[in-house]
Amino acid sequence: MTRVLLLGPAREAAGVAQDEFDGDTVGEILHSAVDRYGADFERVLAVSQIWVNGNPAELTDLVGPYDEIAVLPPISGG
């Protein structure tokens, strides 16, 4: 299982701040996340950046049980 962090509007759309999924790639796991959370989450995901272990990632990147995927919608800090 790979841990997924859901932040800001992604957390709101998913209804949880973190979750776990099976899958070999970032893309597979995010596909499962859309299945689990639905259309609101899919809309937020479409405008979000994806990091793995704190660094920008591609959908084709391989992930394992010790990796952490973060879904980061557009930010508004400061």
Partner: peptide
């Protein structure tokens, strides 16, 4: 740079 680069949501 904090405003542009740090993950934070308000």
């Amino acid at each position: 740079t904090v405003k542009n680069c740090v993950p934070m949501w308000k």
